[in-house]
Design a protein around this nucleic acid. Structure first.
Length: 262
DNA sequence: ATGTCCTAAAGATTAGGA
């Protein structure tokens, strides 16, 4: 089974590339973040024509997550139980589903903006709720992964220049401690191999020629439980998809599972 | 030139988010 996660930065703007990539990559299950659409606007029909069912948690201009699958899509759950509000509202940042026996949770972790911003405190509260939400599946016998845009670089090696992030979000001890807590629940960081250069960055800012200069970050993560991690045959960042006109600022992370022997 | 892109809005540019 080929599973992937991709922050598409608007599924409407990305639709031609998304459909082409699903076909060319042979992805069975794709976790999507930043759909930036309403539930009604989600392109279910175009995906259905390619053989994919869709589970969607989206409500408009910002955020929005989905799982699309051509190998089944059951027991869909939207959001995080007990997840925090922001500006008095729950945001669509998580969705879970079971696809041919594999449980996935597609997440778009709040950005945090600045360390002294209310959004940063919200980010940490949201991660705490995520930890509580996945604890049962993390310890379970069924293959499970929480994957998506975590907006955190797990180590200093996961950013192009640590000094450039002094005082900024994405690299703070508190954010990294939240990831460590997830790993402490039995989840493994399934680190993909890069297709070029040494570090498997997954995101490059649109600005200042970051992609050509490879000024990237590894913030799109796959955290799998033991049954999931032990079934991983290969994982890579498809940085080719970051190239050219009409690209997202994130590249897909692809994971191949061999479930027969696990 | 923040060497950009995406969204929405009493919009034809501005504001907000990343």
């Amino acid at each position: 089974m080929r599973i992937a996660t991709w922050n598409v930065n608007s599924i409407t703007a990305r639709l031609p590339r998304l459909l082409a990539w699903l076909e060319s990559s042979g992805t069975d299950v794709l976790c999507i973040q930043e759909t930036k659409c309403t539930d009604e606007q989600f392109p279910r029909e175009q995906l259905r024509e390619l053989g994919y069912e869709s589970a969607v948690n989206a409500d408009g201009r910002w955020n929005g997550v989905a799982v699309v699958s051509r190998v089944g899509l059951d027991d869909v759950a939207l959001g995080l139980p007990g997840g925090p509000d922001y500006d008095g509202a729950q945001e669509p940042r998580a969705i879970s589903a079971t696809c041919d026996g594999v449980r996935v949770c597609s997440v778009y972790v709040p950005n945090g903006r600045e360390v002294d911003h209310a959004h940063y405190a919200y980010k940490l509260r949201w991660l705490e709720a995520l930890g509580a939400a996945v604890s049962g599946d993390a310890a379970g016998e069924r293959p499970f992964a929480v994957l998506g845009d975590f907006n955190i670089a797990p180590t200093d090696e996961d950013v192009y220049d640590r000094a450039a992030f002094d005082g900024l979000t994405h690299v703070t001890p508190a954010e990294r401690a939240a990831l460590e807590a997830l790993r402490g629940q039995g989840l493994t960081d399934v680190v993909p191999r890069p297709l070029k250069y040494d570090v498997p960055f997954t995101y490059w800012d649109y600005r200042q020629l970051c992609f050509p200069k490879n000024r990237g970050m590894r913030i799109d993560l796959v955290y799998g439980n033991k049954p999931f991690a032990s079934a991983v045959q290969d994982s890579y960042v498809d940085r080719e998809e970051r190239k050219g006109k009409g690209a997202s600022d994130h590249a897909p992370v692809v994971v191949d599972l061999n479930l027969a022997q696990s």
